[in-house]
Amino acid sequence: MLSPNFGSYAVAPSATAQARTKRRWQRLKMGVPAGELVFDGFTAATALITLSLVVAIVVVLAISAWPALVRFRAGFLVGTEWDPVNEQFGALPFIYGTAVSSLLALLVAAPFGIGVALCLSELAPDWLSNILGFLVELLAAIPSVVYGLWGIFVLGPFLRDAVEPALARYLGFLPLFQGPRVGVSMLSAGAILAVMVVPFISAVCRDVFAAVPDNLREAAFALGATRWEMVRLAVLPYSLSGIVGAIILGLGRALGETIAVAMVIGNRSVISASLFMPSTTLASAIANEFTEATSDIYVAALIELGLVLILVSLLINVTARLMIYKLTAQRFTR
């Protein structure tokens, strides 16, 4: 089972943490059993080690990417030219591809994942919900290469022959749905990511819904709420911050997914408004190009892509945490 632990970095010292530290000091001064001290020490050490590991990874990446960092500076982030032969490295197409494919995935996976979780926790009888829940979580256990293969042979052709023509016909006035249809595309990547992310979102949401106090459900029913009204009154408002957390967790997955995306996105470092066009992402580019990177500056540029990926994930996590904090502070006074 997944635990709703949304990333292990960016933990600001909260008021409760400070209170805890203070209490620990008071206990220390009073003299506490040795077991307590050992336990405190152990948990503190594991937390510290985890934290330093994250810092260490960032530092090592930064050092390895140093040549690219000093040579391209901010131009790396805004440049659109990625030309290893002429040692031109601009990462914008990768950042763009990562952002768009992930957002596309969430656009589909979030409502779907929440819906699945609602169905499992509020609608289906226990036995059915256990079986379905198991099946959905099984989706998370499928290796990404297998998803990639499926994307190449099933999903890609299906999108190209069935979905894309329909989109082009009815929504073709939007630049999003114009252009040639080749089977490898941003749309494919978004779709495959959506399938991969749904089980994460639904698993976390299921836990979140299970934490809704039953007496709120009863209160809603007793007022004459239908099942859906009960969900709207009691379940969803109470779970809001948890749902946001689940979506962010899914976003984290989508951002970092590599192989499956590399297999279906087409790997072309261009920025195109059309979702039917091939694209590329930070993660898939690193995996694709690392073996061909011959010059030092090329390697450094690829590592810098990794650094950007980490920082983007970090940024998203911090934003999400702030958002959750704000939401909960506003809506649950006391």
């Binding site: 709120l216 209160a219 007793a222 709420a225 009154l233 009691a234 408002p237 109470y238 649950f332």
Partner: peptide, 19 residues
């Protein structure tokens, strides 16, 4: 649902909707 609208209920533990 129709019955519950005609027959109101107050529980032992008050449960106002927190949001």
């Amino acid at each position: 649902v129709q019955i519950r609208r005609r027959v109101g209920m107050v529980f032992q533990k008050p449960a106002p909707f927190p949001t």
